[in-house]
């Protein structure tokens, strides 16, 4: 993992620091949001939040060749509905806490890690996400390892609050 401490903290006289918060719906989601907001306030940074709608359910169930008629497409539509609902809830929770921190709320469909990596490469200084990161089917994979392996910017992992 790359340390956020090594990040060249930009002064407020130059371009403001840009943070990207990857939203998820796991146990550490709230802490990650709070931490990203705290850093953004402290550094006078802009904070964009990204919610990835997991579009890999078709690949996840790709080995199922027996589904006929409208079973599979009905299932994929159902999952899409749940993903959109999760996106709306996550966005509402983020906006409620963000207050006056500048930034955008982004939603994009695709493979969760690929989409986050793609966005993080767009000039962000720091990517903030919770660990474990359980957005969509990443609950079955290891998003944190995949993201930190070749991250395009510094990454801050926020662990879930101890119970």
């Amino acid at each position: 993992m790359k340390s956020p401490m090594k990040s060249p903290m930009k002064s407020s006289a130059t371009t403001p620091m840009k943070l990207l918060l990857a939203l998820d719906d796991g146990p550490g989601a709230r802490r990650a949001v709070d931490e990203a907001i705290r850093i953004a306030r402290e550094k006078g940074a802009t904070l964009d939040a990204l919610f990835v709608i997991d579009a890999t359910w078709d690949v996840f169930t790709g080995h199922d060749w027996l589904s006929g008629c409208n079973s599979r497409i009905g299932f994929l539509e159902y999952m899409q509905g749940l993903e959109e609902k999760a996106a709306a809830e996550s966005a509402r929770a983020f906006l409620e806490r963000r207050g006056d921190v500048p930034g955008e709320l982004l939603t994009a469909p695709g493979d969760v890690v690929d989409v986050i990596r793609e966005h993080a490469a767009r000039g962000y200084d720091l990517l903030v996400l919770s660990s474990p990161f359980t957005r969509g089917l990443e609950v079955m994979r290891d998003a944190v390892t995949r993201l930190t392996r070749d991250a395009p910017c510094d990454v801050l992992l926020v662990r879930a609050a101890p119970e």
Partner: peptide, 17 residues
């Protein structure tokens, strides 16, 4: 659903498949 077409390649649904 933006990715619906992509999800089933040339087939719109399992019925088509």
């Amino acid at each position: 659903m933006s990715d619906k077409k992509k999800s089933l390649t040339v087939f719109k649904s399992d019925r088509h498949e």
